[in-house]
Simulated assay, not measured.
Amino acid sequence: MSLLDLKTHARYPFVPIIDRPDFSWPGNKRLAVAICNNIEVFSFLDGLGSDSASLTAPQTTRNYAWRDYGNRVGQWYLFDLLDEFDLPASHNFNSLLFEHCPQIADRIIARGDEFVGHGRTNAERQDVLGEEAEQSLIEEARDAIHRYTGKSPSGWLGPYLAQTPVTLDLLKEAGFGYVLDWPADDQPFWMRTRSGPLLSVPYSIEVNDSPSMVFRQESAAAFEATMVDQFDEMLLQSRKWPLVYTIVLHPFVIGQPFRLRALRRALAHILEHRDELWITTPGEIARHFASQCPPKK
């Protein structure tokens, strides 16, 4: 009997957390905390987009309006909450938002937050595209952020975290320094591309309001408990290893007031430990990790 021939990707080697060099985050902190917000725009009655009640619902006026609530209302509640707690954030930002919702971009710039490339719209995904079309999508998203903000994004999260076999290569060649699409670790790690190393930065698909409350139909209270339990355990584990804790949000989900209340309570709990934490953004995490653990030659 022959063993199953497993397919591999050769993008990174297996290195368990117990076999890695130790380091600390700035200020000799052991746990980095980042809030990763997804701001998205959708096509009316067309393309892709989640629904509040059904995983397989077609695109309707109802679910379009439900998602649009995030940009019209929920995002502004969230901005105010972040200001109240004096928290930085990163925003995975569909580039067509600059055309359709420019006031959101202006508030991000005023806050000094990080823009992360997030495609053109979440009505589409890139893993169905050929290499030339995917390259155009990545470059269009990058260039739109640069035109509006004066700065190219250093990080990328694909819509629906979808990738083709060459996405990492295209991102590296487009000047991106890190990617959030590979939730394989609680520390950053280097990935191989045909043009050199690209960093993977942790991004939770568990402490994430959309899978939790839209796809698994969990309650706001359950998501609050997830945020708190993940944080408490990671703070404990960070005594042994430097770790990254992320909360992943979507304003059309978390921006509903009853869910925002759960987020408020969870953040208040986390910030009871503020002096023990490096509260930052994925871009800063990537820069610090690269300075401490550069890729091997």
Rank of each mutant, 00 (worst) to 15 (best):
D232C: 08
R120N: 08
D19L: 15
A65V: 10
L157A: 05
P294D: 14
V73E: 15
V73W: 12
L87A: 05
A34K: 06
L198W: 00
A57F: 05
D80M: 04
A53D: 11
T281L: 07
W25E: 11
L277Q: 04
T8H: 07
R265N: 09
V179R: 01
G175H: 07
K172C: 12
C36I: 11
T193M: 04
S154D: 10
G74H: 01
S95H: 10
A10D: 14
Q292W: 07
Q256F: 03
A262E: 02
A32L: 10
P21T: 04
E114S: 07
H9P: 11
D181T: 01
L6T: 13
P102N: 02
A162P: 15
D83F: 00
E40H: 07
G47R: 00
D275S: 12
A141C: 11
P295F: 10
R120F: 05
I108P: 05
H273A: 12
K297R: 15
H250L: 02
S204E: 00
E206W: 10
R265D: 06
K29E: 03
P88C: 10
N28D: 13
C293V: 15
A222Q: 11
I145P: 00
V73K: 06
M213K: 01
L199P: 00
Q103V: 08
A222S: 11
Y245P: 03
G158V: 01
G27S: 05
Q237D: 14
I205R: 06
D169L: 01
V248C: 13
A222L: 09
P251K: 08
S195H: 02
H146M: 15
I254F: 01
P242Q: 03
F231Y: 11
K29S: 09
V128E: 14
S152V: 07
A184G: 08
W182T: 15
N71T: 03
D46I: 04
L170Y: 02
P102H: 01
K7V: 10
V73D: 15
N71Y: 06
N71I: 05
N208A: 07
V41H: 07
L129V: 08
I270E: 05
L3S: 04
T56K: 09
Q103S: 12
A144E: 05
V201C: 02
D46R: 08
D229V: 06
G150Q: 12
A141K: 01
A184D: 10
A221C: 07
A133H: 15
T61D: 12
K151P: 08
W241E: 09
A141H: 04
W66Y: 12
W156E: 04
F93E: 07
P257R: 01
T56W: 07
F14G: 13
A10W: 10
